[in-house]
Every structure is written in C-alpha cells, then in structure tokens.
Write a protein that binds this DNA or RNA. Structure first.
Lengths: 104, 104
DNA sequence: CATACGCATAAGCACCTGCTTATACGTAGC
DNA sequence: GCTACGTATAAGCAGGTGCTTATGCGTATG
C-alpha cells in the first residue's frame, strides 16, 4: 500500500532508523544499541518500515539483518510527480533510477 | 518543522485535500462539499497542511481561500536527497526549481 | 542437551489523532 | 442593525500509535 510509506515515514524515530540503515545492513540488536528505546520498539519500527516497503530482511542463523530498500521510496517520488506535473521530465529520471535499483 | 510535512502527508484524507487544491484555490466550504467529512474536519486538515507548510491562505471577506504551496514539498525532496546521495545531482535541480517557485 | 542469545509477539498503558456536534466570531446583505 | 453565512475553535469520543515489560520460539554454543 502506498499509504504505508507515508505512515512509515511519519514517525521521527522510524526515519532515524531508516537513516541509520543507509549506513549499511544491521541486526536488530545493533540498532537497539544505537537508539534509546527497547528492542521490541525497534522490532516494531522495523515492521512498519517493512510494511512501507522501505527495508528488506535477511535472516542468518539467529541474526536478522535489515537493509534499506531504495526502491521503496518510489511511491513517494511518484506521489510528488503526480502533483507536480511540470517536474515530470526530471521525475521520470528519478523513476528510471529507482527501477534500476529495484533488484538490490 | 520538517517533521510536520511528514505528519501532514501521513493522512490519506489530507493528501486528497492537497490533491484537490492542486486543481486550484478553494474555500473551506467548497472543499467540504467535495469530501465526506464535516466542515470542522476540513478546517482541521487545512490547519495541519498549513503547519506542514503545504498550503497558503488568502482571506477575502468572509471567505478563506486555500491554495497549494509547492515549495512546501521541498523538505520532502531534501529528505530523499539526504538519504540518496547518488541522486544528488538530479535533486539539486529539483531544489533549484522549488526555490524559483518560492514566491508563488 | 542445556543454557544463552536474537528476535518477534502479546498485553497493557498513556497519549495522539481524526472525527463529530456545539458554538463563537467576523463579514455580508438586506 | 438583524439575520444568514463562512470559518475556526472547543469539547468529547473511539480508535490508533508508540512505548514498555513479559514471554515464547528458534538457533547457536558449551
């Protein structure tokens, strides 16, 4: 759902987690160490980001690695494009970029 | 506050009101007619959009006209840019565009 | 195997949000 | 100057959200 992207990004802590993940893959415990909230809180934020299509998961033994899914931002770019017809040309380029990344 | 843009856009009804305004200036009563919520609800949504810097107001007698403030989307674009360093060049162009519009 | 670890999920709580109805306040128009 | 209109604001309510602690379940490790 497109709506989930907006919801996912509405929370500042969640945006901060997203930012942290741009620096590279991380496990839940690693993320928990960097933020001043409990591990369940982090897990819940990650679930929201995942619902928004903004992160991907990789399980390795008892560790769960989360990583950014850049293509998840596409709905956002699409949305801006939709209401800013005059940006269309430039936005098309962004979309093309996002498509390239879609297999990350 | 940058955070207010995200909050403002998190609600689907609010995004729909924003969309409606892209078709042109409208009064509160006009907007109320297009959506299935009460006039106060519309006023509250408009207040949230205004807090997010997404709309501007023009008072004319007993009417209040709301209109899109395209530059209000800049924090969003900035945010995407910030976490997508590789888009920097393209985003810079968007920012320039938005700056041009800032006196709309 | 037994214990510890990594994570998700459940339950509960305070607060926030989006809606409603009621109302107040300014402007318009007879 | 009344009366009606346009809008904002207040108050109240149901449901959502973000957090916590408690717990369960799989996996690693001695």
């Amino acid at each position: 759902m497109q709506s989930d992207v907006f919801r996912a990004l509405a929370d500042p802590t969640r945006r901060a987690v997203f930012e942290q993940l741009t620096r590279g893959e991380a496990t839940v415990t690693e993320l928990t160490r960097k933020f001043d909230v409990s591990q369940p809180a982090i897990s819940q934020h990650l679930a929201a980001l995942k619902a928004g299509g903004l992160v991907a998961v990789r399980r390795a033994g008892r560790f769960t690695y989360y990583r950014i899914k850049p293509a998840g931002l596409r709905p956002l770019v699409d949305w801006i494009e939709h209401y800013q017809a005059f940006w269309l040309g430039r936005m098309k380029k962004l979309k093309a970029l996002l498509e390239e990344m879609e297999d990350d």
